[in-house]
Design a protein around this nucleic acid. Structure first.
Lengths: 192, 192
DNA sequence: CGTATTTCTTAACTTAAGTGAACGAATTAT
DNA sequence: ATAATTCGTTCACTTAAGTTAAGAAATACG
């Protein structure tokens, strides 16, 4: 399981055995059950996550309704907004499936980063990359219709459509569950 | 003018006079005329921008139509996607107004970052912050209607609505110019 | 195993966005 | 200065998403 983490890190920097051991000794690995809430609205957590296996989601509760805005699966890293701003969280994070994660505290990260400049470098490259990637995702979202967004998702993350409940997918696509059902029926119609 | 840049930097790290001089000696400042194209689709630029004064925009040309997805104004930093991925740009960047920018080459940045670890730290903090901020923007976009998005923009960036052409604003809000006109008329109606 | 709950789909109706066209106003080019 | 183009708004019409409600399917749970 640890290998997944080191495979991921190796895309950015190369680690010595000592450095790898330093990471392992932090004891970051956690198994979490489907349905577990990792972060609640209003909380002031310092934890960041990296998904080794499974799926977690970010959602808001607006007017009593759950609005899912993001899914994180294998090899995805998530630093919640509240960790950066040190303000209470505006959203929830919970497990869509039984998952294995690393959970790292931001104090811990500051310490590691100052001890190993290599991590600082990795974090910079990683967040620049994530920022650029997310910009493209946002641009695609803005410039396409719900139907195009669904077809796009089908191309880029086909697994999500299988493993995630429809009503969560719907808000992820910026529409209502009923509209997603209808839209899918429409697409099937067109194909035939 | 330089002070704006140093004010910005001081939010993240504090610089010595030597370090400030090192930056000034890079000769990053550029005046650009309204309408100037800074980056074209297909180009492989290494330049990043920081807006000291004015406004620049990111837009795609999709089926012959301009789709504006982002505006950068005073104190905003923009590293184009192609600089990160080293692939040809998918979008254009141009000046909405006469502007004063800093333009920095990524080779230059690598050099500075290795010379002054402080910059590395600043870049990491900055991109983490931008990533978090953009995530919230994306979430708000997903969870609200065009009308709510317009009202939200009116709150958060009222200047944009004044200084930017309507048809560019429209695609920024994910709709057509005609829909933006109608939506604004609808809001005025409601108020009275 | 069966009941309760949640989830997904369908349908009818409402509301808002997309489309194509027209027109005046503003901007730009010559 | 004038012509040409671009821009913003309005309108009528089309299409798709929101809403409300109902029923079927899947899932959770005692």
């Amino acid at each position: 399981m640890q290998d997944i983490l080191f495979d991921f890190i190796s895309k950015y920097v190369s680690l010595t055995e000592d450095e790898k051991n330093a990471i392992v000794s932090l004891d970051l690995f956690r198994s979490v059950e489907k349905g577990t809430t990792l972060l609640k609205e209003g909380q002031n957590s310092k934890d960041s996550y990296f998904v080794l296996k499974g799926c977690i989601r970010v959602y808001y509760i607006i007017d009593g309704e759950e609005k899912t805005t993001a899914f994180y699966t294998e090899m995805d890293a998530l630093t919640p907004h509240c960790v950066i701003t040190k303000a209470p969280s505006e959203y929830f994070i919970s497990c869509v499936e039984d998952s294995i994660l690393t959970v790292s505290n931001s104090d811990m990260e500051v310490e590691i980063n100052s001890k190993f400049p290599k991590f600082e470098l990795m974090c910079r490259i990683l967040s620049e990359e994530l920022l650029a990637k997310q910009q493209i995702d946002f641009d695609e979202f803005k410039t396409s219709s719900p139907e195009q967004r669904y077809l796009n998702l089908l191309q880029k993350r086909p697994d999500l459509i299988q493993r995630v409940p429809q009503h969560q997918l719907a808000s992820f696509l910026g529409i209502k569950p009923q509209s997603l059902s209808r839209l899918r029926a429409r697409i099937l119609e067109k194909k035939s």
